Each structure stands twice: as structure tokens, then as C-alpha cells.
Amino acid sequence: MSHRSPPVRRRLALAVLGLAAAASLPPVAAQTAYPARPIRVVVGYAPGGSVDMVARVVADILTAKLGATVVVENLAGAAGVVAAQRVVGSPADGYTLLAGSSNEMVATGLVNPAQKYDPQTDLTPVGVVATASVLLVAGPKLNVHTTDEFLTLLKRHPGKYSYGSSGVGSLQHFAAELLKQRAGVFMTHIPYRGTAALTSDLVGGSLDFALVSPTAAAPFLQNQRFTALGITSAKRFPSLPQVPALGEHPQLKGYELSGWFALAAPRGLPPEITQRLNAALKAGLAEPAYRRRLEEGGAIPATGGEDLARLMREDADKYRQLVKFANMRE
């Protein structure tokens, strides 16, 4: 029996060494290349809206560039806050992402102190997908056709006229308050829960002006039930070249306020996964087919190289001043 002992001892020694080596390796999940399972992109708005449109373009980009299965989940509520809260509370592993907007990623927390998350500390910025602006439109009863006529009317009758937005703290609300601040005019804010009621009241004459997305305004502009006075972007919108940027008017020189759509993840997302997602997004945004889909949805595609973290900080500073000016609170 003694002649068999050395092989047994060697086998035991090798087994011990194997166990030690295995213990020193990272977990299997950590060794698996990302993505190893389906990615969920959470959207804080109902299907068919602008953020949902952007989310589905992002999902297709990630599917193509990462070879992943990507599922879009609509979780509407509280102007995107419900979805953002879901993402904030998810594991930072790259499998739950937020397709969000400047609304829930900047503005809502400034007007609602009860919001439970801080976008700048509780989210990992991945990248900007697109920007979007809104139109200042006039209803049919006023016979106002230009920014100049609009400003003249408001200065002649301060406080007489009203404007509608999609809610307190929305891009439309901030854009109107910035206009009021810059031009020294006053309008009464009427917040709405949806575009349908707003456009109905504007056409019916119970509302004087409104700020709406180019997509929502398009059918009303075509049948001349609205008049577009200006757009909030720094430059004219490509599909509406006849509509001036509000900043072109001498009293509003430098005026600009655009919203944006972006991809984010929970705080603590590993840098290598952040970089992988950002690279995929940037590659997709360089392709004409994806850019065309965003443009057809009323958005201006980003380059993929924008600094989302800096954009969030800068917009928070700008919006904070407007919150104070307009005393915005939910």
C-alpha cells in the first residue's frame, strides 16, 4: 500500500491548490461579459409620447450595438418621478436604465421638496440622446401673429391674458417664466394634466396662449387654428424654418431654454459599464437612420459627446433662479 501514497498525496495537494485558486477568482457573474441578460429601459411616461419615442430609439440602439435584449417598461406617474425612483432603487449593474428627460432629472426636485431622490447624486449619467424645444402659440381669437405683437399686447394689458403648460415645473412652465422674466411681462399660468385639454381650451378661446411641443402643435398649425409665435431653442427648428427663435426678438436677445432626453442608471454603476453604454449610444447617434427617427419625433439628435453631468448642474442652476422668480411650488 505504501507505494500508492505519493500519488494520493499529490492529488490531494493539487485539489487543495485548485480550491485556493478558485477562491481567489471573482464571482462567475463578475466574469460574464456585459450584457449577459436582458436590459430594462424604464420610461416615466405613457406610450406614444416624446420620452417614450426616445426610449424606443435608445432600446433599438442598445440592441444593435450591444447585442442585447432590451425591454422598454412604461411606468407613468408624477411627471416621470415614479420611474426615476424605481431606477434609483435598482441595483447598479447596468440592467435597469432610465430613459428620462430634463423634467425628472432636474426640474421636479426643485418644485417638489418631497421628492425622495436627488438626480445629481442618485443617478449615474450615461449620455444625452436628444434635445427638444417648445413653441409659443396663440389661440385664434387674439389675432396675434408675431412675437412683437405678443409682447406689445401683454405690456398694454398686464395680467389680462393667460397661458397654458403641461404642469407646474414642466419645461413649458419654465420657458414661459423665463420669457416673462426677460421681457418684463405678465401672464397667468394655467397648468394642465395633458395636451388634449390644453389644445382644446386654446382653440375654444378660454385660454389665450400656450407652450406646446412642435409635434403636438403640428396639426393645429396646419389647419391654422394655432399661430406659432416663436420657439424656445437658440436656433430655428429644422422642420419649422418660418417660425423664429424667441431670442431673435430685441427684447429677448439671448433667450433659450431647451429640454433634453437622456440615458441614466442608478448611482454606483461601474465605470466600464457606463463607458460601454455611452459608446453604444454615441455609435447609434452617428447613424442617419436613428437620427431621422428622433427628428421625425420632434427632437434634435445629440452627438453623443455631450457632458450630461455638467448639463444637469447648469440646468439646475438656471431652473433654481426661475423657481425663485415665479415662486413655483407644487
Rank of each mutant, 00 (worst) to 15 (best):
M1Q: 11
S2E: 10
H3E: 13
P6R: 12
P6W: 12
P6Y: 09
P6T: 14
R9V: 04
R9W: 08
R10A: 11
A15M: 11
A15Y: 02
G18R: 09
L19I: 06
L19H: 07
L19D: 08
A20R: 12
A21K: 08
L25W: 13
A30R: 11
A30E: 11
A33D: 14
P35G: 01
P38L: 12
V41Y: 01
V41F: 00
A46R: 09
D52C: 06
M53W: 14
M53Q: 11
V54L: 08
A59M: 01
L62I: 07
L62K: 09
L66G: 02
G67P: 10
T69M: 08
T69G: 08
V70M: 03
L75S: 05
V81P: 03
A83H: 00
A83W: 00
R86H: 02
V87D: 05
V88Q: 00
P91Q: 12
A92N: 15
Y95W: 13
T96P: 12
G109R: 15
V111P: 07
Q120G: 03
Q120F: 02
T121N: 05
D122C: 03
P125C: 02
P125A: 00
V126W: 07
V126D: 04
V129H: 04
A130R: 09
T131V: 12
A132I: 03
A132C: 03
A132T: 05
L136T: 14
L136E: 15
V137P: 09
D148L: 11
L151S: 09
L153S: 12
P158H: 10
G159S: 02
K160F: 07
Y161L: 01
Y161S: 01
S162P: 03
S162N: 09
G164L: 02
L171H: 06
A176K: 07
A176S: 10
L179E: 04
G184D: 14
V185H: 13
T188S: 11
I190P: 02
R193C: 06
A197K: 11
A197N: 13
L202G: 00
S206V: 09
S206M: 08
L207A: 01
D208R: 00
D208N: 00
A210Y: 04
T215E: 01
A218F: 03
A218S: 03
Q224I: 05
T227I: 14
L229H: 04
G230N: 13
A234H: 10
K235C: 10
F237M: 08
P241G: 03
P241W: 05
Q242T: 12
P244N: 04
A245N: 06
E248F: 00
E248T: 02
P250C: 04
Q251R: 15
G254T: 10
L257K: 05
G259L: 13
G259K: 12
A265T: 02
A265C: 02
R267K: 13
P270F: 05
P271G: 14
P271H: 15
E272V: 09
R276Q: 03
A279L: 08
K282G: 04
E287Q: 10
Y290L: 02
R292D: 14
R292I: 10
L294P: 06
E296Q: 11
E296L: 13
P301N: 05
L308S: 07
A309Y: 08
M312L: 02
M312W: 02
L322N: 13
V323Q: 13
F325Y: 14
E330Q: 12
